[in-house]
Simulated assay, not measured.
Amino acid sequence: MEETKNGTTMVVFDGDLDKAIASFIIATGAAAMGKNVTMFFTFWGLNVLRKDNVISGSDKTMMEKMFGKMMPRGPEKLALSKMNFGGMGPKMMKKMMKNHNVSSLKEMIEMAQDLDVKMVACTMSMDVMGLKEEELIDGLDYAGVASYLAEAEESNINLFI
Score class of each variant (00 low, 15 high):
153 E>N: 15
86 G>W: 11
136 L>M: 09
61 T>C: 05
114 D>C: 08
1 M>N: 12
81 S>Q: 14
9 T>R: 06
53 N>Y: 00
18 D>P: 02
89 G>Q: 12
161 I>R: 07
41 F>A: 04
38 T>S: 04
122 C>A: 09
120 V>L: 03
31 A>Y: 10
145 V>C: 09
10 M>D: 04
47 N>A: 02
34 G>A: 03
14 D>R: 13
57 G>A: 12
111 M>N: 10
8 T>M: 12
119 M>F: 01
148 Y>L: 03
90 P>M: 09
49 L>Q: 01
104 S>P: 00
56 S>D: 14
155 S>C: 07
126 M>R: 02
64 E>S: 06
29 G>L: 07
100 H>Q: 14
68 G>S: 11
95 K>D: 13
143 A>E: 10
88 M>Q: 15
32 A>E: 09
56 S>H: 12
22 A>Q: 15
38 T>W: 05
48 V>I: 05
86 G>Y: 11
6 N>E: 05
123 T>M: 05
160 F>E: 10
41 F>R: 03
73 R>N: 14
42 T>P: 06
2 E>P: 09
120 V>P: 00
62 M>W: 15
48 V>Y: 06
111 M>L: 14
149 L>V: 14
78 L>G: 08
107 E>Q: 13
59 D>H: 14
117 V>I: 05
107 E>Y: 09
30 A>C: 08
119 M>G: 01
4 T>H: 13
156 N>A: 10
127 D>N: 14
